[in-house]
Computed example of a mutant assay.
Amino acid sequence: MKLNFSDKVMQAIIYFILVVLAFLAFYPFWNSLVLSFNVGSDASLGGVTFWPRAFTLENYEIVFKEKRIFNAYLITIARTLIGTLVSMFFTALFAYGLSKKGIVFKKGYMIICIVTMYFSGGLIPYFVLVYNLHLYNTFTFLIVHGLVNVYNMIIFRTFFQELPDGLEESARIDGCSNFGVFFRIVLPISGPVVATLSLFTAVGLWNDWFTPAVFISNQNLIPLQTLLVQIVNAGQTATLIENLNSYAQSTVEDSSTVKALQMATMMVATLPILLIYPFLQKYFVKGALVGSLKE
Rank of each mutant, 00 (worst) to 15 (best):
Y151Q: 01
Y151H: 05
M153I: 09
I154L: 14
I154P: 05
I154D: 12
I155A: 04
I155W: 10
I155F: 09
I155Q: 10
I155T: 06
F156D: 00
R157C: 11
R157K: 14
T158V: 02
F160R: 00
F160L: 00
E162M: 14
E162Q: 15
P164I: 05
P164M: 02
D165Y: 04
D165N: 07
G166M: 11
G166L: 05
G166K: 11
G166C: 12
L167S: 09
L167Q: 06
L167C: 04
E168G: 13
E168P: 02
E168S: 13
E169H: 02
E169L: 03
S170E: 11
A171G: 07
R172D: 01
R172V: 04
R172Q: 12
I173L: 14
D174E: 13
G175W: 10
G175D: 10
C176K: 14
S177I: 08
S177Y: 12
N178V: 13
F179Q: 03
G180S: 06
G180V: 06
V181M: 11
F182T: 05
F183K: 15
I185A: 08
I185V: 15
V186Q: 04
V186R: 00
L187H: 02
L187I: 15
L187C: 08
P188M: 12
P188D: 10
I189K: 08
S190Q: 12
G191W: 07
G191E: 11
G191Y: 10
G191V: 12
G191S: 13
P192K: 01
V193K: 02
V194R: 01
V194F: 15
A195S: 13
T196F: 10
S198Q: 07
S198I: 08
L199Q: 06
F200R: 07
F200E: 06
F200I: 03
F200G: 01
F200C: 00
T201H: 05
A202S: 14
V203A: 09
V203P: 01
G204P: 01
G204R: 02
G204M: 08
G204N: 11
L205P: 07
W206Q: 03
W206I: 01
W206E: 03
W206K: 02
W206D: 07
W206H: 05
N207T: 07
D208Y: 11
D208R: 06
W209G: 00
W209T: 08
F210I: 08
T211F: 09
T211A: 13
P212C: 00
P212A: 01
P212W: 01
P212K: 01
A213K: 10
A213H: 12
A213F: 12
A213Q: 14
V214F: 08
V214W: 12
V214S: 08
V214Q: 09
V214Y: 09
F215P: 03
F215E: 03
F215K: 08
I216M: 10
I216C: 02
I216L: 10
S217L: 11
S217W: 06
S217T: 14
N218G: 05
N218M: 08
N218Y: 10
Q219N: 11
Q219I: 11
N220W: 01
N220L: 07
L221D: 06
